[in-house]
């Protein structure tokens, strides 16, 4: 690539980044300054940055309860997703009668939006006696078809001779999955962790329907009740938003390198 085209590409990328990061910057700026969005003239640098609004947000709602609920549910979702999706993905790399039927069923399921199945999902959760519980909130998110397919495509890229060698070495199918396939599919694992964590962390509608008591509320529900309780809350609201978003951003940043590899391998070998 010539210098001129490199400069051109970078200029475009930097300007796109600028527009994408501006709202995030604005949220962070407001969370430390409490300045109203419509202040004129708008200031780029916060006048008197401080952590007051974070402290206020922390004490206004039961932050520790909300955070630990969300964190426990997200952790459960991530672990169960990893186990179930890897197992399903590995099974789908094998030949078995009705495999194409299973694949079509999975793909068709992806086309149905969650909102369309929310009533049966609610009834099922109620039947299981899991309403108003963390397990009930986690239940519909315990496996994601996208992640199953991601594991499948990653596993298919592992040479079959490795699996055969492992079989001759005396490994069971479960051991082949855990000792060979998963360690060789780090991008899929990273992608699975990020997607299931973020989806679980950000989920609003399902917890809203399932949860009745405040002690089971998650962060997004807490945000709504936070909004409902106060009138002039600009600074605290933005501080709370930052606290809600921060964990999922951290998880993403920690695993983003493998995440991008996971998504691209899924796209090309799909």
């Amino acid at each position: 690539m010539s210098l001129r085209s490199r400069i051109f590409t970078h200029a475009i990328l930097i300007s796109v980044c600028f527009f994408m990061l501006l709202p995030i910057y604005w949220v962070i700026k407001t969370s430390v300054s409490g300045e109203n969005l419509f202040v004129y003239p708008p200031s780029i640098i916060p006048a008197d940055p401080n952590m007051f609004y974070y402290v206020e947000a922390w004490y206004t709602v039961d932050f520790v309860q909300l955070f630990s609920n969300s964190f426990l549910i997200a952790t459960l979702v991530v672990i169960v997703n990893l186990v179930l999706n890897a197992m399903a993905g590995y099974a789908l790399t094998k030949h078995f009668p009705g495999k194409s039927l299973v694949m079509s069923f999975l793909l068709m399921s992806m086309m149905i939006p969650f909102h369309a199945t929310i009533i049966p999902a609610y009834l099922l959760t109620a039947e299981l006696g899991l309403l108003n519980s963390k397990l009930g909130i986690a239940l519909p998110a315990l496996s994601h078809i996208v992640c199953i397919l991601l594991f499948k495509s990653n596993f298919e890229a592992v040479p079959s001779s490795l699996i055969q060698a492992a079989r001759l070495d005396g490994l069971s199918e479960w051991q082949i999955l855990t000792k060979i396939m998963i360690p060789l599919s780090k991008p899929a694992v990273a992608t699975n962790i990020i997607l299931s964590f973020i989806w679980s962390w950000n989920e609003f509608l399902w917890p809203l329907i399932v949860v009745r008591s405040p002690d089971q509320q998650t962060m997004p529900l807490g945000l709504v009740s936070f909004l409902a309780s106060f009138e002039d809350t600009t600074g605290s609201l933005y501080a709370f938003c930052v606290l809600v978003v921060l964990p999922s951003m951290l998880v993403f940043l920690l695993a983003q390198k493998d995440f991008i590899r996971g998504l691209t391998s899924g796209a090309t070998k799909g």
Binding site: P159, S161, Q164, A165, A166, L168, L184
Partner: peptide, 13 residues
Amino acid sequence: VAMVFQDYALYPH
């Protein structure tokens, strides 16, 4: 039995 494969099948990790 022990087998040596054409592509060696060594565990890369």
